[in-house]
C-alpha cells in the first residue's frame, strides 16, 4: 500500500505498478522487471549500485577511512582481549565448556555482524528524517529500505564479520562433537537464519525512528542488547528471562536453539527439540513482521510528515 516496498509482501503490488508503467512509457523504463524475481533482482542491483557509491564516497576522505579501518581492527583486537580476559578466568559457564560458549558467541556474533554489514545503516534513519534528507529518498524510484540501508554505509564495518568468523572456526575445531552431516550443515544454516533474524530486528527497531526520530541511540542500544543476549547460554539470564528471550523475542533462534543440536545437549529450558530446527521458519516470519513494521513506519511518515 504505502511505499515501503520491502520484502515479498510488497512485491506483488510493485509488479502491478511496474506493469502499469510499461503500458505507456515503453519497455525501456522497466526493462527486466518481471515478476517477483525480477523485482528482487532490480532491488538487488540498486542496492549494489548504492553500496559501490558509498565505497567511493568513503574513499574521498582517505585519512578518515584509514582511521576508521584501524579503529575497526583495534576494536576487534580489544574485543578479543576482553573475551580472552574473561575466558582466561573461566573454565565453564553455566555448565557449558569454554569451546561451547565460544561456539555460541561466534555464531551469534557472526550472524549479527552479517546483518550489520547489510542493513546496519538503517539506524541512521532518524538523522535523515531530522535534517530533511529523507524527502530526497522518497523522490527516487528505488525502495526506501534499499536507500536507507545504503546511506551513510560505512565500508569498514563489513570487516566486522572477520573476527566472529575466526571464533566460529576455532571453536568448531575445539569442540568435542561427533560431526554428522546434519550438524555440519546446521552451522552455516544457523548463521544464515540468524543473520536474517538479526537484520529483521534491525529493520523493525529502526522503524521506531519514524515515530521518534531522535531515538537513534536507543535503537542502537536495543540492537546491541539483542546481540549481547544471543551470545551466551540463555540460562545465564535465569529461567523466566531466558524463556522470554527464546520464545517471545526470538533471540534464542539466532544460535542458542540450533546450537543445542550441534552440541547434542538437552535443553535446560525443556523446550521441544523440534524448535532447534525452526529457525528458518522463525526467520521468515520475522522478515514479514519487519516488512510490516517498516511499511507502517513509512506510511506514518507520509501521513504526518514529521
Amino acid at each position: 500500500m504505502a511505499s515501503g516496498k520491502t520484502g515479498p509482501v510488497a512485491g506483488v503490488r510493485r509488479v502491478r505498478e511496474a506493469r502499469g508503467v510499461r503500458g505507456d512509457r515503453g519497455a525501456g523504463a522497466v526493462r527486466g522487471v518481471r515478476g517477483i524475481g525480477g523485482l528482487l533482482r532490480a532491488e538487488a542491483r540498486a542496492y549494489m549500485l548504492l553500496v559501490r557509491v558509498a565505497f567511493r564516497e568513503a574513499a574521498q576522505y582517505r585519512t578518515s577511512l584509514a582511521l576508521r579501518s584501524l579503529t575497526e581492527a583495534a576494536a576487534t583486537v580489544l574485543d578479543l582481549a576482553a573475551i580472552g580476559i574473561v575466558f582466561a578466568h573461566l573454565s565453564a559457564l553455566e555448565g557449558f565448556s569454554l569451546a561451547e560458549v565460544a561456539f555460541l558467541y561466534g555464531t551469534s556474533a557472526l550472524a549479527f555482524a552479517l546483518a550489520e554489514a547489510f542493513v546496519g545503516p538503517v539506524d541512521r534513519l532518524g538523522w535523515h528524517i531530522r535534517d530533511g534528507r529523507f524527502d530526497v529518498v522518497l523522490i527516487r524510484p528505488v525502495s526506501v529500505l534499499v536507500q536507507t540501508a545504503t546511506m551513510a554505509f560505512s565500508p569498514q564495518r563489513v570487516a566486522r564479520v572477520a573476527q566472529p568468523a575466526v571464533i566460529v572456526v576455532v571453536s568448531c575445531l575445539a569442540l568435542h562433537v561427533h560431526w554428522t552431516p546434519d550438524r555440519v550443515l546446521l552451522v552455516p544454516a544457523m548463521v544464515l537464519c540468524g543473520a536474517v533474524l538479526a537484520a529483521s530486528a534491525f529493520v523493525a527497531t529502526a522503524a521506531v525512528l519514524f515515530v521518534a526520530p531522535d531515538a537513534t541511540v536507543a535503537v542502537a542500544a536495543s540492537t546491541q542488547g539483542s546481540a549481547l543476549a544471543a551470545r551466551y547460554p540463555m540460562t545465564v539470564y535465569g529461567h523466566h528471562l531466558a524463556l522470554l528471550l527464546t520464545v517471545v523475542l526470538p533471540i534464542g533462534f539466532v544460535s542458542w536453539l540450533p546450537a543445542l543440536h550441534v552440541l547434542s545437549r538437552p535443553d535446560p529450558l525443556g523446550l521441544p527439540t523440534a524448535l532447534r530446527f525452526a529457525s528458518p521458519l522463525v526467520a521468515a516470519v520475522a522478515v514479514g513482521l519487519a516488512a510490516l513494521a517498516w511499511r507502517a513506519g513509512v506510511r506514518r511518515y507520509r501521513s504526518t510528515g514529521s
Binding site: V208, V211, A212, P213, D214, A215, V217, A218, V219, A221, S222, Q224, G225, L228, A229, Y232, V236, Y237, G238, L241
Partner: peptide, 20 residues
C-alpha cells in the same frame, strides 16, 4: 517517545549485563 525508548533499552541492557 525518544525518552521512553531510551529508558527501556537502557534498562534492558542493565538487566542483561547484570545476569551475565
Amino acid at each position: 517517545a525518544t525518552v521512553a525508548a531510551s529508558v527501556l533499552s537502557n534498562v534492558t541492557l542493565t538487566v542483561l549485563r547484570g545476569y551475565l
